[in-house]
Design a protein around this nucleic acid. Structure first.
Lengths: 215, 215
DNA sequence: CCGCATCCGTTTCGATACTG
DNA sequence: CAGTATCGAAACGGATGCGG
């Protein structure tokens, strides 16, 4: 059954992009894959509200149109993962811009927040003074480990274990977001048990402050 | 009946943007409004395939969320127009990027092409040598007049009558597109009656060539 | 003609249940 | 874990009609 998706039938590049990315959940699936390959169930967890049904269908569509690929992991762990193709990775700046634009939309009331969203926000929102000394953090959100590094005023976020981090911060996505948007401060987060810190707390404070200023 | 649109229920900026722009035709409506206010029927013509039904609903939604405004024209012409708010105008760069990304998607078979799409393409695709002398054109597509100017290697497209154009080009959207993408040349277009030219043809040729090179 | 409401068939989506 | 099957609900597309 060849998926004859509904098309805009418009030769414009925008319409053609939407023919591929315009259906519900498509862009959010891509958002989730921005920090590396994920399994079906990872996506399911990151996108509650998307039915398994929809997910598998969208994944097939995106695979067919060449935005993502399905790959089987090597023998020991024999599960399948989905990952962005080179072309798919090129939507990242678009999603970033869309994300900044969307900040002016009021938050939905019961709101989820995936680790990925927060990390994108961190990466995109930070404009740090280039004279700030370099630093590396180990960020643990929802069991997933990320290396967050500050180098020459540029924030980098990668989905790996950092070597020699200056500090480790472990907490849930909501807390990271509240910290970055300045809604709570680090002390409160620690005291209320929402965050666990290990290492150089002052450096972490610098990073957080620089992002919070932007917002 | 307050439009309680389906929401992603996700606090991420991307998801919130999609709560507003994610439904079918929404972004294309915005695309059409990028060059200035339009009436309901103008939108209808530019977006065949969108039912009047859908259009009026989308327009209300976009108005409610503050992306566009509805304004009544002054007395003589007492019709209403829709136009982007400042915030709405900020999606332009996003749509441009989306448009470039989407060029790699194969064209739908029976494909329409609105004047707006072509002009966006013209504006976005042209990287002209800054040493090229300035020029101004009068472009007439589907009865709509635009001023296309080349100044210091930058292409500007505005929806107004230009004063003192170097040349006038009148044709349908498809032809402009074919010219810009190098699929036909100016001579052929004129000979086959697809384009009508008045004024300095050589200058027009320079503009066209510089865009076609990009593609 | 313009802006929209209404009716109706089709497609897409969402929730739950169920299988390899 | 990684999806498919099923089914009701919502969104969409097309046609028509109606008051400015």
């Amino acid at each position: 059954m060849t998926a004859k998706t509904r098309t805009y039938g418009d030769a414009c590049g925008i319409a053609r992009a939407l023919d591929v990315l315009g259906s519900r959940w498509a862009m959010l699936v891509i958002r989730e894959l921005l920090f590396g390959p994920l399994r079906f169930s990872d996506l399911e967890r990151a996108l509650p509200g998307a039915s398994t049904n929809m997910l598998s269908y969208r994944l097939r569509e995106l695979t067919d149109s060449g935005v993502i690929t399905r790959r089987r992991l090597s023998p020991p762990a024999s599960s399948a993962v989905y990952e962005l193709t080179d072309w798919g990775r090129e939507v990242e700046p678009i999603l970033n811009d869309l994300g900044s634009w969307g900040l002016r939309v009021s938050k939905p009331d019961p709101a989820t927040l995936s680790p990925t969203s927060v990390l994108l926000f961190l990466r995109g929102g930070a404009k740090v003074d280039p004279k700030t000394p370099d630093m590396v953090f180990r960020l643990v959100i929802d069991e997933r480990v990320f290396a967050v590094s500050l180098h020459a005023g540029h924030v980098k976020v990668v989905s790996t274990e950092p070597d020699v981090p200056d500090a480790t911060l472990e907490c849930d996505p909501g807390t990271v977001n509240d910290l970055l948007s300045g809604e709570i401060d680090l002390e409160t987060a620690i005291d209320t048990g929402r965050a666990t810190i290990d290492g150089d707390q002052s450096k972490l404070r610098i990073l957080i402050a620089s992002v919070a200023d932007e917002v």
